[in-house]
Design a protein around this nucleic acid. Structure first.
Length: 488
RNA sequence: GGCUCCUUGGUCAAGUGGUCAAGACACCGCCCUCUCACGGCGGUUACAGGAGUUCGAAUCUCCUAGGAGUCACCA
């Protein structure tokens, strides 16, 4: 049988990391097995509709490469793929379930239910519906229906025994019938609840492997009872542990935790995000950590899935993002980075030079601007920076060396103002003055940037700045230094 | 609280009766080096606790503790 998996989110207007990971695993499993991956939107809660929420889902899946062969916006042979367009289907099966005795009409009012709940709470017991309406005769039910009384349809769970199934991650799961409630399958507004809709749709869409969050682990036995009642084959189950913010809290929108979109806006690459979350709760075996989506699909297997929850570690994602950034071709890097910076210039040659210096030194695309800000304008003068014990430099002894450097660099013409020439010139200055290279290079770099840490060495930056600007900054810093020393 | 499930370093994790308990991120140190980053080398840190079973337990059993999920006309 052909493997078919699905991602079935409810449109909440937010794609959090845990959700994306669930979709990823379902996609990977389908691809690994040459099967189909489909998208279904679960929007049966008519009170919680969010505008454009579906677009976020479509765009995220498309953007990350988790393509679906069937879905609301792409069609397919098992549609519609939006539950709100499948209303009549659920009604039909609800009635069949009633006929088979696996479900029943319930006319209990909210008041009666609330009273029951209150009573249970008072006695310190867990509220459980008392199957009150199950006692109604066929005629009584029909009479109420004819009278137009409001109703719901509840699942009729046996009072005794237990229901069990095998979960591919957690193994054998057994739940006593007595712990399950006669859940509502069809609401009074005529819409189904998840309890019924997921079963009907997964069967009708011929889903072979249900891959979803662990929140359904303990209610799955109830769903299985429905499959059994309808005479349908149960799917294979894969329940996934949650992705956590910390030891006790789940990653969530409410906590303001990063969504996929947030991470993209923070300068993370989609490939890195996918790679990282694939490894968050799944281990490919071996020591390799960097995988493309295609490579993941080749090695994915259910055995590597973890049972325990995993804490989302932005530090590791950041490291991995750096790996991905460094692996980008220069062209690709510039294209992607340009969404986050204007490079401070329109000159493509200069942009390429800047990119060459920046690419190996950043871990997120948002770090570029801060790293190249000094190109636009030199940082404020700080004499302290000229003191460097390793290179034995001080504000005082930097002055003559910078003067020599200015002299040497002035001799280099505009067209020869490139790294190799500049480096050689400054090395010569050091040699002439009988000092170590660093003793010249350090103050020069400080003098043209005003920063202790820069993305590149003195001569690389000088090339970027150009002859005119380099000399101008050198002179300005020299003036500042002289003023500082004389005042001291 | 009932039920279901989980528990190896700060984090992700390998490990399925015999290992000096892998690896990665982070952190620290050293090297490389025109600062930083990259890269290279090295280091600190873990089997939640307690009973068993066994010649031998991270691995099997039980108990305790901690944590998660669930107990809606939400999914």
């Amino acid at each position: 049988m052909k493997v078919r998996t699905r991602f079935a989110p409810s449109p909440t207007g937010y794609m959090h990391i845990g959700n994306l990971r669930t979709a990823l695993y379902a996609w990977l499993f389908a691809k690994k097995n040459k099967g189909d991956f489909i998208l279904r939107i679960e929007d049966t809660d008519r009170n919680r509709l969010v505008d454009n929420a579906c677009d976020i889902i479509y765009n995220t899946l498309r953007d990350t490469g988790l393509s679906y062969s069937e879905g609301p916006d792409v069609g397919g042979d098992y549609g519609p793929y939006i539950q709100s367009e499948r209303k009549s289907i659920y009604g039909k099966y609800a009635k069949i379930l009633v006929e088979k005795g696996a479900a029943y009409y319930c006319f209990c009012t909210k008041e009666r239910l609330d009273a029951l709940r209150e009573e249970a709470a008072k006695e310190g017991k867990v509220f459980k519906y008392d199957k009150h309406c199950l006692k109604l005769s066929k005629e009584e039910v029909q009479a109420k229906l004819d009278a137009g009384e409001e109703y719901v349809i509840r699942q009729n769970i046996p009072l005794e025994g237990e229901s069990s199934y095998f979960d591919n991650v957690y193994g054998e799961i057994k739940v006593p019938m007595s712990d399950m409630e006669d859940n509502i399958l069809l609401k009074s507004d005529g819409w189904p609840t998840y309890n019924m809709a997921n079963v009907i749709d997964d069967h009708l869409m011929e889903i072979t492997h249900v891959i979803r969050g662990i929140e359904y682990l303990s209610s799955t036995p109830k769903y299985n009872l429905l499959y059994d009642a309808l005479g349908w084959e149960r799917p294979s189950y894969v329940h996934l542990p949650p992705v956590m913010k910390d030891k006790t809290k789940k990653l969530s929108k409410r906590n303001g935790d990063a969504s996929y979109e947030d991470l993209i806006n923070k300068g993370y690459l989609k490939e890195a995000i996918i790679n990282y979350i694939a490894l968050l709760g799944w281990n490919p075996g071996g020591e390799r950590e960097i995988f493309s989506l295609e490579e993941l699909a080749e090695v994915f297997s259910l055995e590597g899935l973890s049972k325990s929850s995993a804490i989302f570690d932005i530090e590791k994602l950041t490291w991995m993002n750096g790996e991905y950034i460094r692996a980008l071709s220069k062209e690709d890097f510039i294209t992607r980075a340009s969404r986050f910076t204007d490079w401070g210039t329109d000159d493509p040659v200069k942009i390429e030079k800047i990119a060459g210096l920046i690419q190996p030194r950043i871990e997120t695309l948002t770090q570029i601007d801060e790293k190249i800000a000094f190109l636009r304008e030199m940082a404020a003068f700080d004499a302290e920076l000229y003191s460097n014990k390793k290179n034995k430099t001080t504000p005082e002894n930097s002055i003559p060396l910078i003067e020599s450097a200015i002299e040497a660099l002035s001799d280099i013409p505009e067209e020869g103002f490139v790294n190799d020439n500049l480096y050689q010139a400054l090395i010569d200055v050091a040699e002439k003055n009988e000092v170590k290279n660093g003793k010249v290079l350090w103050p020069v770099r400080i003098a043209i940037t005003g920063l202790s840490v820069t993305p590149g060495g003195a001569t690389e930056i000088a090339e970027l700045l150009g002859r005119k600007e380099t000399l101008k900054r050198l002179e300005a810093s020299l003036d500042n230094l002289k003023r500082f020393v004389s005042e001291d």
